[in-house]
């Protein structure tokens, strides 16, 4: 599924957070200017934002915080973003966390092959980033409701 088709599924005024309280985003990113912009735009959109500066810290934080979504760059030190994604998706405790690979690299196929829910290429366009995160969370939420209702 492409992001464009995901975006079409989201109504313009659908709440960003399907749960009570703010959805939590864990961003794995080491570039300080990128972190600054991600923090500003994601917080402005109503999300709670936590940061990890490298892959190992990102995986540990994800396991501890169990955020709603991990937004990860591939090029981070320690453990790359794709490895973080694979580790999260391999562990039943973290498998439900949505992963968005947000990278300077054109690596959509590699991201999806690693189990990521979506891929977005940098640079940061705040509208696209926020809409992508909202669409992924909305889809995730619908999926949960579906299971709760006993639907396939």
């Amino acid at each position: 599924m492409t992001l464009a088709s995901l975006n079409r599924q989201v109504m313009p005024h659908e709440p960003a957070n399907p749960r009570e309280g703010r959805a939590l985003i864990l961003v794995v990113e080491q570039d300080p200017q990128m972190r600054r912009l991600e923090r500003f735009f994601l917080e402005q959109a109503g999300f709670g934002v936590e940061f990890a500066a490298d892959g190992r810290e990102g995986l540990a934080l994800a396991q501890r915080l169990v955020p709603d979504i991990v937004v990860a760059e591939i090029l981070v030190s320690g453990m790359d973003g794709l490895s973080v994604c694979r580790a999260l998706k391999a562990d039943p405790a973290t498998r439900a966390i949505v992963v968005l690979i947000f990278s300077i690299l054109a690596a959509e196929q590699r991201a999806l092959a690693a189990g990521a829910d979506a891929f977005l290429r940098k640079p940061l366009d705040d509208t696209r980033l926020v809409k992508s995160v909202e669409a992924l969370l909305a889809r995730h939420h619908r999926g949960r409701e579906g299971r709760a209702d006993g639907a396939p």
Binding site: D31, P32, Q33, M34, R36, L37, K122, P123, L124, D125
Partner: peptide, 12 residues
Amino acid sequence: FDLAGLLTAYDV
């Protein structure tokens, strides 16, 4: 360097 980093991070 910082300013170039900022402008590179954003779609601008």
